[in-house]
């Protein structure tokens, strides 16, 4: 599975990339803002997305999540702002809390496989 990451902290992108590859999936790239995602969306190839609540262009994670799920992309929030993520539970398969732990990450990523096309 190819997984995209929306996250503005490069250290965390780096960590997530490694965790994704450890699980045998492909890291499809990262964007630090919703604006970057929209600009580069056409031609991107990915099956699922991990999204933080606060991005480089503000609290745009939830809008990005809604936008991606409308395109049929399953998403999971990766955030320390669990309360806000919970308000958008309708568009996400789950929430990975920060700081990220490997077992939690692995368990939540498995949810993608359960809905994959």
């Amino acid at each position: 599975m190819r997984i995209l990451c929306l996250e503005d902290n490069p250290l965390i992108v780096f960590h997530i990339e490694q965790l994704i590859e450890d699980l045998g999936h492909v890291f499809a790239g990262a964007f630090e803002s919703f604006a970057d995602l929209k600009e580069n969306f056409t031609g991107m190839d990915f099956d699922a997305a991990l999204i933080d609540i606060d991005l480089a262009d503000g609290r745009t994670g939830p809008i990005a999540a809604v936008w991606l799920s409308e395109q049929g992309v399953p998403i999971i929030f990766v955030t320390g702002q669990e309360k806000i993520a919970e308000e958008y539970c309708g568009v996400s398969l789950g929430i990975i809390s920060k700081p990220i732990t490997q077992p939690d990450f692995a368990r939540k990523i498995a949810l993608f496989s359960s809905v994959s096309r």
Binding site: N9, H15, G80
Partner: peptide
């Protein structure tokens, strides 16, 4: 609170990597 969480997340990632 937001910044402390961010720092802890960064440190966790640095640690793991």
């Amino acid at each position: 609170n937001h910044r402390v969480k961010n720092i802890l997340a960064s440190v966790t990632s640095i640690f793991a990597m």
